[in-house]
């Protein structure tokens, strides 16, 4: 077997130290390309175990207002998929070991060319992909190229999936599974804790692939409730909103990044107890 990937090693380390991982999301190019790099460093400094980098899209169907707005701002600042990959590549040069997962929608990738994208993403040191609008039915044409280059294919699981559907999703999952805790889009409601715990316990019995929980997680308190129940927790909208609010107050560049470090640290403490 090939040596463990960065993502796999990360989850092994988390398991061995009995910690729940923190996956922190930022939109590439938000609020602009230069600041974006500082914000990614801030996620790592604050204690994120895995960084999820959003590829901006004009029509982010599964996202709530905060991430939509970040996407719009990034596109307005001139962000493109090619530049997102450059941001990823520069991140990899600064952080050799932190897993980096790209998250986005298929159209820009399709337009870029599935194979060309897979090649560039692998070159840039990307570890995995979440392509929101490529369910198993349609993932083949991109996955054909990304599997070959050792990129993990992260699938979404939902509370409304039937058992037959879950079996289909678990088969062929890699890296980690992204359990969508709420019915809806990013950044909206809060998850029902009990339903979530039951579901995670059940899923844990079905698969060896680590389970990350996301959508609707906002505070250290939300994360504390997941401690020990999931392999990792994903926070996105709350961090974007933190940056947006700090920008509103006039913070820029390094000061914006410092503010974000504090926010991530709080979340990290919620998970660690």
């Amino acid at each position: 077997m090939a040596s463990a990937t960065r993502l796999e090693s990360c989850f092994v380390r988390l398991r061995e130290s009995r910690r729940t991982g923190l996956i922190a999301f930022m939109t590439a190019g938000y609020p602009d390309a230069e600041t974006s790099a500082l914000l990614l460093d801030a996620l790592v400094e604050g204690g994120a175990d895995i960084v999820e980098l959003g590829m901006p899209f004009s029509d982010p169907m599964a996202d709530g207002v905060s991430i939509q707005a970040a996407s719009v701002a990034a596109l307005r600042s001139g962000m493109t998929l090619a530049q997102t990959l450059s941001i990823a590549e520069a991140f990899r040069a600064r952080h050799a070991e932190v897993p980096l997962v790209l998250m986005g929608y298929y159209n820009p990738i399709y337009h870029f060319g599935a194979e060309a994208f897979a090649i560039r993403a692998a070159e840039a040191g990307v570890d995995g992909l979440i392509v929101v609008d490529l369910p198993p039915e349609e993932e083949g044409e991109l996955r054909l190229h990304t599997d070959k280059r050792g990129l993990h294919w992260v699938r979404l699981l939902t509370p409304t999936s039937s058992e037959a559907r879950l079996a289909k999703l678990l088969h062929g999952a890699s890296g980690f599974l992204y359990y969508v805790a709420v019915r809806g889009i990013t950044g909206t409601q809060r998850a029902d804790e009990q339903e979530l715990a039951q579901r995670l316990a059940w899923l844990g019995g079905q698969t060896q692939v680590p389970l990350a929980v996301g959508f609707g997680l906002r505070t250290a308190e939300d994360l504390a409730a997941l401690r020990g129940k999931a392999s990792a927790a994903v926070v996105g909208s709350a961090l974007i909103e933190r940056v947006a609010a700090a920008s509103e107050r006039g913070l820029q560049g390094a000061a914006l990044a410092t503010d974000l470090v504090h926010a991530v640290r709080e979340l990290r403490q919620g998970l660690d107890g």
Binding site: A62, P135, E137, E138, L156, T160, S161, L169, V180, R183
Partner: peptide, 22 residues
């Protein structure tokens, strides 16, 4: 059966919508 018209069509949606569409 998968909703494809040749290479076109399909179900390019988030997994969150798939159970509903099924």
């Amino acid at each position: 059966a998968a909703g494809h018209f040749g290479d076109f069509g399909g179900v390019y949606v988030a997994e969150t919508l798939i159970p509903t569409l099924l």
